[in-house]
Amino acid sequence: MAAVKKTLSIDCVGKPTREINAFIRQAADDGVPVVELLNPQARHNLGVCVLKPIHIVIRGHVGYYAAGLSDHITVEIHGSAGWGVGDNLMHGEVVVHGNAATSAAPSIRGGTVVVKGDAGPRSGISLKSGLLVVGGNSGYMTGFMMQKGRIVVCGNTAKALGDSMYQGSIFIGGSIEELGSGCEIVVPEADELDDILKTLDHYQIKAPKAFRKIRSDKSLWNFNKHDFAAWKDVL
């Protein structure tokens, strides 16, 4: 049996996205442990639908939906990411060393997405499981309609934080410009904080002094005539 190469590299310049992704999937099929993408030039849809374990190192910025709809992969993005990084991730890990644009980790169903810099609006929107960690600040509507899972933001968050979240929890280290509808601030449990600090340490992200926890207050779970004040913004 031929030895499997430890790392395969592909230069993205001049190659269609379809060819680059097919190269990654083939490498995963062949049991190659690491694929390195050079010169991604903010290309959209890199690393989409890779469903077998492989480690992908991307040397530069990526566009929309990097590592989207994938499973069992680990990805390092040595740059910033466009909209929807890690879209619908099932299991695995995506680490963005720069910033992430709108809707980081949308609707992920598992795994971990880490943004070491800042994240744009609607980070962790419709999160269905898994973990989103933002080392810096996060934009408005972070955790909008979140269903399950955990979001950790070490910096500040903009308006409508956690708006209409069903379940799950959001931990904020910095300021909260405005809480969204249907959620409340509570004191985190000691084991939750312990877990978060271990995670931040693992990703070499400096932990803030303290965290506040946001969770659903369940006021929007069911239509209720007595809660018009809460409903008027969200109906």
Binding site: H44, C49, S126
Partner: peptide
């Protein structure tokens, strides 16, 4: 939701279509 969580206009939709075609 009434909007998709990760695209807004038709230019975004073009990227979303490419993602789904990749799948």
């Amino acid at each position: 939701g009434c909007r998709h969580p990760d695209w807004m206009g038709v230019d975004d939709l073009y990227m979303k279509l490419e993602e789904l075609r990749e799948v």
